[in-house]
């Protein structure tokens, strides 16, 4: 009963909370590195969402070990495959973002947004 409720409802609420933490952090945090971290949290939430979609109780990996067992006994591999791509995308976005931050830091010597904008407008 509890397990049922956890897997069909609570997990999605948790993912929603995690997803919303992203924009929340990006808006409220003034430090640019923290903004990137918030962005990552948001992306991870979507990745988790896809993985939950592909999950199934009591099923196994979709690999043929001793003959095929029928579709019911396998988890859905497609979301996992998609999320590999999404992880790569998120990794490269983080990479570009950190590279830009290096340049910002070099340029202005500051990563706190308020101070940065003040220095930019001088």
């Amino acid at each position: 009963m509890i397990k049922e409720m956890l897997s069909s409802r609570v997990i999605y609420w948790l993912i929603l909370v995690m997803f919303m933490l992203g924009p929340f952090g990006m808006i409220l945090q003034k430090n640019l590195v923290k903004k990137i971290m918030a962005m990552n949290v948001m992306q991870v939430a979507v990745i988790a969402f896809f993985l939950v979609l592909g999950q199934k109780e009591g099923a196994t990996l979709p690999i043929e070990i001793q003959g095929l067992m029928g579709a019911v006994n396998y988890i859905n591999p497609l979301p996992h495959a998609l999320m590999l791509t999404a992880i790569v995308v998120s990794l490269s976005i983080t990479g570009v973002a950190l590279a830009l931050l290096l340049l910002v830091q070099k340029q202005y010597g500051e990563l706190e947004e308020d101070e940065l904008i003040r220095r930019m407008n001088q």
Partner: peptide
């Protein structure tokens, strides 16, 4: 432009 690009990156990724 660097900061503009960073801002676009954050918002665009959302």
């Amino acid at each position: 432009a660097i900061f503009a690009a960073f801002r676009y990156l954050i918002i665009g990724t959302v």
